[in-house]
């Protein structure tokens, strides 16, 4: 059901990410200001964009669940949020490494970009205790969906905060007028972003497949128990 097209998708992901890493280290020039350390940008920023996109996707799937009552949409929402939290851990870790190298501190509290992402991340950490504190599957799915929609609507605020931040350390790199990235850096960034999107979709389908198989197995076990 969920595993359809997983193999070619995984292959496309592997090729795109390998291409992205090759471009990062052999094609994109070193940044004039930050030097070689700016290479972290190509893994940190795509991961952050995809994580935030995954949170919003979780909200959209939750809307579909509440509208249709189909629990498969709740599963899609849960897995999207779960994966986004994992990517969020990566964003915070790579961001801290970049901050230490660039600013001399692992974390800077007066930087709105960092703090707003942390707020979103901590908000979604609440999703797990909320979801797993409810035993009834129907109620669990409904309450989780309501949370996913409310939190998903909050995520764009984080994006707006990033766009409004005028800090020198987080310049606007992509905009309708072209942004500040030179062509070779922009191409490398876009390939990295595509690789991250494909990675997210591949892992999302993989976890959905595993969860679906686990649920089918549970049904099979119950049926075998009743028959015995």
């Amino acid at each position: 059901m969920y595993s359809k097209g997983l193999a070619p998708l995984a292959a496309a992901t592997a090729v795109t990410i390998t291409t992205a890493f090759t471009l990062v280290f052999f094609y994109a020039p070193n940044d004039a200001d930050q030097g070689f350390i700016q290479k972290i940008f190509y893994v940190h920023v795509p991961m952050a964009i995809v994580a935030l996109g995954g949170f919003v996707a979780g909200g959209v799937f939750a809307i579909k669940h509440l509208r249709s009552g189909d629990s498969s949409w709740d599963l899609r929402s849960y897995v999207a949020i779960h994966l986004s939290i994992i990517l969020g851990v990566g964003v915070l870790a790579t961001g801290a490494i970049w901050a230490k190298a660039s600013w001399g501190h692992w974390w800077v509290w007066d930087e709105p970009v960092l703090v707003s992402f942390l707020v979103v991340f901590l908000l979604y950490c609440v999703y797990y205790p909320l979801r797993f504190s409810i035993e009834d599957p129907g109620r669990q799915a409904r309450y989780s969906s309501v949370f996913a929609i409310a939190a998903g609507a909050f995520v764009p605020l984080n994006f707006v905060a990033v766009r409004m931040a005028e800090s020198f350390t987080h310049p606007r790199v992509l905009s309708q007028t072209g942004g500040d990235l030179p062509g070779d850096m922009r191409l490398t960034f876009l390939v990295s972003l595509l690789g991250m999107v494909l990675l997210f979709v591949t892992l999302w389908k993989l976890e959905l497949t595993a969860k679906h198989a686990s649920m089918q197995l549970k049904k099979l076990r119950n049926r075998a128990r009743v028959a015995a």
Binding site: V43, A93, I97, G104
Partner: peptide, 23 residues
């Protein structure tokens, strides 16, 4: 802060990419 020399910056960049791959 001025840009870090390559040998020092390389450790941080490698660290960030290792975190991603390990995750």
């Amino acid at each position: 802060m001025p840009a870090l020399p390559l040998d020092e910056a390389g450790k941080y960049v490698a660290g960030a990419y290792v975190v991603f791959v390990a995750l």
